[in-house]
């Protein structure tokens, strides 16, 4: 009963925030609405008996990833108007049509595979025995230990890739650590000399 109420309170919020995210003109508004949507998804995880993913969803998605998004939006500037010209004729209507087709198709697949039955959620207390985090750790560190270790390589590669893309290019030379006076050919503010203790301004 409680999960029924929570579901029907959260589901409209989730759909509405997702639709509003697509329709928002300002990229910052899109990001904020996406954060709302991530919170509703976290609540769904809680209903489905996964408090661990509830917390991870809020910390990693609504916290870290969306802060990164907002940071980049602020860095690039948000004032740019999006042109309404369509590169492909009837692109928007075609997208809506294909989206509706996708919904119908997968809903039919759900009906065939699971069925729109009226049974409640299956009992999960046996699986979550000793706590969800402990049960998840038992699965993760027994059957999925090797993939778990491989993700560490993935994260390192991602970090190096981001550094490679984010470095500053000076002229034709691709370097990060150019000396400061070589950077003077592009117009910019006068470099502040390193303030030593002797030349500190009074």
């Amino acid at each position: 009963m409680a999960d029924w109420i929570v579901f029907w309170v959260i589901a409209p919020v989730s759909i509405a925030s997702a639709v509003a995210m697509i329709l928002a003109k300002n990229a910052v508004h899109s990001a904020l609405l996406l954060i709302v949507n991530f919170f509703t998804l976290a609540v769904f995880f809680l209903i489905l008996g996964s408090p661990f993913l509830f917390v991870v969803q809020i910390i990693v998605y609504a916290g870290a990833i969306m802060v990164l998004f907002l940071f980049v939006i602020m860095l690039l500037g948000v004032d740019e108007r999006e042109s309404l010209r369509e590169r492909i004729l009837g692109q928007r209507w075609l997208a809506l049509l294909l989206g509706a087709g996708l919904v119908v198709e997968v809903a039919l697949a759900v009906r065939v595979g699971v069925g729109f039955g009226h049974g409640g959620l299956p009992d999960f207390t046996r699986v979550n025995r000793g706590g969800n985090v402990q049960a998840l750790a038992r699965v993760l560190f027994n059957s999925y230990f090797f993939p778990f270790e491989v993700t560490s390589i993935l994260l390192i590669v991602a970090a190096i890739g981001a550094m490679l893309h984010g470095r500053r290019r000076i002229g034709d030379e691709e370097t990060i650590d150019a000396p400061i006076d070589e950077r003077m050919d592009e117009p910019g503010p006068e470099p502040v000399p390193a303030a030593g203790p002797a030349e500190a301004t009074p």
Partner: peptide, 18 residues
Amino acid sequence: MRTPISYFLLMSVLLFTI
């Protein structure tokens, strides 16, 4: 007054399509 699994799957389909 119970929520079957299919509700969550339909929710997932709608969000994916959006």
